[in-house]
Design a protein around this nucleic acid. Structure first.
Length: 762
DNA sequence: GAGCACTGC
């Protein structure tokens, strides 16, 4: 480990092992509740005991394919003694640095940065190092403005960007500490808190939570009094939430600590990539010009990880056609490299994946019978769980898997068995264009840090090779890191969070990267449109409520409108919002002709000619009215079961909150309720409620039968995923506006032109 | 006629 000041900039020296390992998304097949089940002992593969748990693989009838022949007890049910676990902990690279970490953060320094490569053990060990320290005890102190003493400290929060990472890490650390998490557990030393799932036993010292969760806690308790320390993990992913958290933490650390009775909050920032200087500088610079006395110096610890070496090969010349180059590379590996060793190829999207899948299938069919087979496995988010499953299953005998994946395999899931990575060097990137009020989704070159991450996927189980379909020069020309999300996203939500947290002058809020003035101003205008901020920019009652709801400000505004007596349709709006925010779309796209007709026939009773909003409502109502077999119901209609389940969770949460906030007068009747078709009046009321949040997203039919937006006069087309695709309506309202091939309106409803005027004039 | 990936008392 080296410690250094930021001025001593360290070059990344081409070291390709500085990799992130996010435990990744749990592959939940519904029948496999793995969360609280003690895990199987890890394969004794050297050198790594993974720093973060790998995501659980779907349980297979016979999984034990131990490579080095050492048979092992499969049964994870046995409570294990501490020894093997402790042994594994001590073997982690970070273990040797415990004293340094404690000395650094235990003294006058309140902020510490740790750059820990994959396999260093930082996520599981750092909180355990901290939690037994003296400064980590809960103390009773007097706080300004309160007569009674209050408790400050006692817990450590550790944030994760993804839910599965938070829960699986919590389970692992709980076991290591000898207090494994179980459903009915009353006491323990480790807990977690993610949306819809909380398990914080009495006596919890270490709490894993998602970034969004800590942000919510910050709204309730700006001083984070229950915590002695906050560990921010995976900060290099730079989500909007983590940027906001960094800002709030900086304010707490550099503030006068009155709200915490003088007790400092210790902050540990952890990153898996090398470009940490900016972040370090951020925490070192004074929070505001008023007080420079509290300037921090931030120590940086670098800790090696444990990865197998990966040999990187760039192309000699730029490739003219990525699909061809990919195909050639795959066949070359297949013919030149022995089994076992699956191939993981990174592509930019579904279209490329499907095209390549067909090519590989044809190639596979041409192979002689004495040559190993080649099995293409597509892997992208919109694919159903069943279709994803093949990528995670071990390859059949005498077969090599080729996983054709989007960015999903870069951080969110880990595919076992991979020895070869092929990197197209491209990814689709979403970017919000505040001037047009729309987002774009375009193929862009990846960053160096992303390329490094992809490369590392070949070295998880043994030495590997990475074939980059771009030249070494092209690699050098890539940007160091991806653009932080806060510079690519709509900042409306972030601005609302600041306002709700009492930050009136948002431009004074400390951010590692500040969005350009124009997009902040656009967000402020939008918030004013939504009645969330007053003319002087201060937050309104409506704004406070919107900040509370776990949906975007626009959807929150629709909910508030629905509670007004003239509309009175809160339950319906909750159903619709739940459905929309549960995932990309609840409807899977239909492939083959025959299945298409059959499914479309069944879907007919869900589709509404008024548009997508009422279609979602009908789908949700039909689904909840179904009491025979909801799984089968979804299957027949090719509806995304995972999203429907998620929608029900959101629905329950929103109903609870609406009751609490008095948007609902009484508790809704429990499911299943008989399905009742929507009356035209109700339909109109619903669409008018949505107009309260989306007046600025409407378009009128022009004489040449194109649609022109009312705000900005842009040409839009109705997206093919909409039930209104190809139809001509007097006026439309849309909830999403995306530029891909064209300017598309998504989630479209037919409205009357005069409703827009009404909504604007109130 | 088209679909990078996450997330929220």
């Amino acid at each position: 480990m080296t410690t250094e000041r930021p001025s001593k900039r360290r070059k990344q020296n081409g070291n390709e092992s500085g990799l992130i390992n996010i435990g990744g998304r749990m592959v939940d097949f519904g029948f496999n509740k793995v969360k609280n089940q003690p895990p199987k002992p890890k394969e004794q593969q050297q050198p790594q005991e993974p720093e973060q748990p790998q995501e659980q693989q779907p349980e297979e009838p016979k999984v034990d394919q131990t490579k080095n022949g050492n048979s092992k007890k499969r049964n994870g049910g046995k409570p294990k003694q501490d020894t093997p676990l402790l042994k594994a902990r001590k073997a982690l690279p970070i273990w040797a640095h415990q004293k340094e970490i404690l000395a650094s953060i235990g003294g006058s320094q309140d902020v510490l940065m740790i750059m820990g490569e994959t396999g260093s053990g930082k996520s599981t060990q750092v909180p355990q190092f901290l939690c037994n320290e003296d400064w980590c005890r809960r103390k009773k102190v007097k706080v300004a403005g309160q007569s009674d003493p209050v408790n400050v400290g006692g817990m450590i929060a550790i944030t994760q960007p993804r839910r599965v990472a938070a829960t699986t890490l919590a389970n692992r650390v709980a076991r290591e500490m000898g207090t494994p998490l179980a459903p009915g557990m009353k006491e323990g030393s480790v807990g977690y808190s993610v949306r819809f799932d909380h398990n914080v036993p009495k006596g919890t010292k270490i709490k894993f939570l998602t970034e969004g969760m800590l942000l919510q806690e910050l709204l309730r308790d700006p001083n984070l009094r229950q915590y002695s320390a906050v560990v921010v993990d995976e900060i290099h992913e730079r989500s909007v939430d983590v940027d906001m958290i960094a800002g709030f933490l900086k304010q707490i650390v550099s503030g006068n600590k009155e709200g915490r009775g003088g007790i400092p909050l210790k902050v540990v920032i952890m990153s898996a990539t090398a470009d940490v200087e900016r972040i370090q500088e951020f925490f070192e610079s004074p929070a505001s010009d008023e007080e420079s006395k509290s300037q921090q110096s931030v120590q940086l610890l670098r800790i090696k990880g444990r990865q197998f070496p990966v040999e990187i090969k760039h192309t000699e010349r730029p490739v003219p056609n990525i699909r061809d180059a990919l195909y050639k590379q795959i066949t070359q590996i297949h013919e030149g490299e022995p089994l076992p060793g699956d191939i993981l190829a990174f592509l930019s999207g579904q279209e490329d994946i499907e095209a390549l899948q067909r090519l590989i299938e044809d190639y596979g069919a041409s192979l002689a019978s004495n040559v190993p087979k080649l099995l293409p496995c597509p892997l992208y988010g919109q694919l159903s769980m069943q279709a994803q499953q093949a990528a995670f299953r071990p390859a059949p005998k005498f077969t090599r898997k080729v996983i054709l994946s989007t960015n999903i395999a870069e951080t969110s899931v880990t595919v076992p068995g991979v020895r070869f990575v092929i990197d197209s060097g491209k990814a689709k990137v979403k970017q919000f264009r505040s001037r047009l009020g729309m987002e774009s989704l375009l193929v862009k070159p990846i960053s160096k840090s992303s390329a490094t991450q992809r490369t590392g996927r070949a070295g998880r189980e043994g030495p590997g090779k990475c074939f980059r379909l771009f030249t070494a020069e092209a690699y050098e020309s890539l940007s160091e890191a991806d653009l932080p999300e806060i510079l690519r996203n709509d900042v409306l939500g972030a601005i609302l969070t600041m306002k709700a947290r009492g930050i009136n002058d948002v431009f004074s809020f400390p951010l590692m990267d500040f969005p350009d003035v124009d997009s902040v101003e656009k967000a402020l205008v939008q918030l004013h449109f939504l009645d969330a901020i007053a003319d002087d920019g201060s937050i309104t009652e409506i704004g406070r409520k919107l900040a509370l709801f776990p949906v975007s400000a626009q959807y929150g505004r629709v909910l508030l409108a629905a509670s007004e007596p003239q509309y009175d349709c809160v339950l319906e709006v909750i159903d619709i919002i739940s459905c929309i925010t549960s995932g990309e779309s609840i409807f899977y796209q239909l492939q083959m002709e025959e299945e298409r007709e059959e499914v479309e026939e069944l879907r007919k009773e869900l589709y509404r000619r008024e548009g997508d909003i009422l279609t979602y409502l009908t789908a949700m109502q039909r689904y909840t009215a179904e009491h025979a077999d909801r799984v089968e119901w979804c299957k027949k209609r090719k509806i995304n079961l995972r999203n429907m389940k998620q929608a029900l969770n959101i629905r329950t949460q929103l109903r609870g909150m609406c009751l609490k906030e008095k948007l609902l007068k009484e508790k809704p009747l429990p499911d299943p309720q008989p399905f009742e078709p929507l009356t035209p009046e109700k339909g109109e009321a619903l669409l008018k409620c949505f107009l309260k949040g989306f007046v600025t997203k409407c378009a009128l039919l022009a004489p040449d039968s194109s649609y022109v937006t009312t705000h900005g006069k842009h040409l839009v087309s109705i997206h093919p995923s909409s039930v209104l695709h190809g139809q001509k309506k007097e006026a439309i309202m849309f909830l999403e506006h995306v530029f891909t091939q064209k300017n598309y309106a998504k989630k479209v409803s037919a409205i009357q032109a005069d409703w827009i005027i009404q909504a604007l004039t109130k």
